[in-house]
Every structure is written in structure tokens, then in C-alpha cells.
Write a protein that binds this DNA or RNA. Structure first.
Lengths: 165, 165
DNA sequence: TATTGTTATACTCTATAACTATA
DNA sequence: TATAGTTATAGAGTATAACAATA
């Protein structure tokens, strides 16, 4: 953050007039996008204190909860292609937070584990995540949060997948 | 879609076991992300029928509702930097859907308008968007949708911005 | 000096193709 | 022949710096 102000043409200007968004404001997909961007911005910001991105946090969490899981399963569970998962895990391993170990009975696969430093860092990250969550729950209340999570899960339940796809 | 099957190593495999996501499943930011990805995938798919991306749809919608608005205001209202807005609008103009026109009294600025073909296409896109919305509303009901939109707007109301940032 | 629009550029995320070593 | 992991690469989306024309 030792960056000189420079010229900075690109600050977002405040709008002079209220803009009519039309049907956009009634589209769930747009409301979801806006909310996700807002919360993710905050979440990204607090994780960056420890040089961790949201995707790395979720990977650490899955490894913690499922030690020994193979890469394919971990990457699938966080919605990543294995091809993009490799460099992410490379960095976690390079930083000494996670480790790949051989799996007995299948020399192709690798089981994933957290190191002790990885577990220690994750404990701090979880604390930050809890505070982040509380900050936004304050806006809608505990009941609002419960309703919201329930609605979101129902919305994405694969049992109700839309026709095409 | 005339693409030969080829080898396709990268299909996502179904997981063998249920993976414990730990605190992730209770984090609103992750639930929002998953829901947004699911709905956006569907939305993107139906817009692609007319070779339109979600951002282009929202720009067309804002221009329709606010004809003559300058580029800076349109790009701000859809959350884009003006620098990224330029090529998006270039394409809409090249396809004859939108047009830049001079603004009386300020020769730097350009007012944005829909062409007749742009209006006609947007009418079709709106119909598709309505069907998309209905498809997902079917999962949570009209009441659920109203609750969801209300919760999402409260969550992102700038009047309740979190402390840092 | 500041603003509108623009170009060039870089970085992150995501996606496809193709390889290796094992099974 | 199929699977686990990997490499290389391409495409979106988003970010900053810097410029010309105009205010």
C-alpha cells in the first residue's frame, strides 16, 4: 500500500441522476450478483490480510475437514477444474500450509493434508470469516440470515434443475 | 455447436463420497456465490441464443430506460469501468443495436440510444429473462422470491456499509 | 485543472487440449 | 481403455496508467 496517488483517471464518479434499471432490479440473478460482489469484496479484503484468496480458504477448509482426500475430490467439492486446482495447491504447498502425500494402493493419486502451520493459519482465517459473517448478519438479523441461507439452498438444489442444460 | 467430441479429459467427475464443507456451508458469501453461479449459468445460456452476454443485456436495458444517458453514467450504473465499457458498446454499435450520438452543449460526451433493431432484440431478451426468472421462482415460490429480493437488497444497502473499506 | 472518452496493458478466473504415469 | 494429476494456453472479466479533445 505504499503507492503514490499518481493521476488516477479511473475513480468511479458519482452519478448525477438516478438511473432507472428497469426489469434488472427484479431479476434474482442480478440481485444475487450485486450481493455476492459486495460480500465477496469484504471477504476478499479480510483474507488478503494473510495473503489468502477466497478459493484458497475454501480449499484449506475442505482439506481440514476431510484429511487425506484426493485432489480430484477436493477440487470438485469447491467447484474448480483440477487443471486450475494444481497451481493453487502448489502455492499452498510452497508456503508450507498444505501437503500432498502418496495414497496406499494407487500410485497415481495424492492425498491432501494440512500442515501444523496450515492448521494454525486456518484457525485465524475462520475467526476473521466469523467476524465478516457477523458484520453482514447485523443488517438482516439472525432470522433473516437463516431465511436467506434456506432460500439460497432451495434455489440451487440440483433436485430442481431447470429443463435445459 | 459443430464441435467434434474430441478427447475431453476435463469432464467433472461425480464425487465418490460426500465431502464435509465445514463452516463454508454456513457462510453467506459462499451460498451467494453458489446460487449466483447456478442462476448465471442458466441466464448466460439463454442470452447466448442471441449472442448476447449478461453485461450487454443490462447495458441495453439501461439505455432503453434512460435514452440519451452519457457513457460514464451508463457504465457506472451497471458497475463497469468506463475503460471496459468502450469495447462492449463498440460491439453493440457494430451490430447496429445501439448508437452513440453527440450531446448538445458538451462535445466531449456522447448520449446512448437504442436503434429499432436494438429495441426489437431487447423485447425478445426480456421475454427470455422473464422465463428464466419464472423457472427459478418455481423452486421457492412467489413469496420466497419476494423475501429473497428483500433480504438481498437489505444486505447490500450502502446505508449499512461495514466499517472498513 | 478537471472531465469524457479512449487505447494499451496486466492480472485473475475459468476453460480446453493434450500429455505422463499409473490403473 | 480409463483415471489422477499435470502442463500449456486461450478466453472472459476486471484493473491501472496514460493520452486527446473538450470543459
Amino acid at each position: 500500500m505504499t503507492k503514490q496517488p499518481a493521476i488516477d483517471d479511473n475513480a468511479i464518479p458519482a452519478p448525477d441522476a438516478v438511473v432507472d434499471l428497469g426489469p434488472l432490479s427484479g431479476l434474482t440473478v442480478y440481485a444475487l450478483r450485486n450481493a455476492q460482489i459486495a460480500l465477496n469484496k469484504d471477504f476478499q479484503h479480510i483474507m488478503a490480510q494473510h495473503d489468502i484468496r477466497p478459493a484458497q480458504f475454501s480449499v484449506l477448509e475442505v482439506i481440514k475437514r476431510n484429511p487425506g482426500l484426493r485432489q480430484t475430490q477436493v477440487s470438485f467439492s469447491v467447484g474448480m477444474k483440477t487443471t486450475n486446482f494444481v497451481p493453487l495447491l502448489d502455492e499452498l504447498e510452497r508456503r508450507g500450509l498444505a501437503a500432498r502425500r502418496p495414497i496406499a494402493g494407487d500410485r497415481r493419486a495424492r492425498g491432501l493434508f494440512l500442515t501444523q502451520p496450515g492448521q494454525d493459519l486456518l484457525a485465524q482465517l475462520e475467526q476473521l470469516a466469523t467476524e465478516h459473517e457477523a458484520r453482514f448478519v447485523a443488517r438482516i438479523g439472525a432470522d433473516g440470515r437463516a431465511q436467506l441461507l434456506s432460500l439460497l439452498h432451495r434455489l440451487t438444489d440440483p433436485a430442481f434443475d431447470p429443463p435445459h442444460g
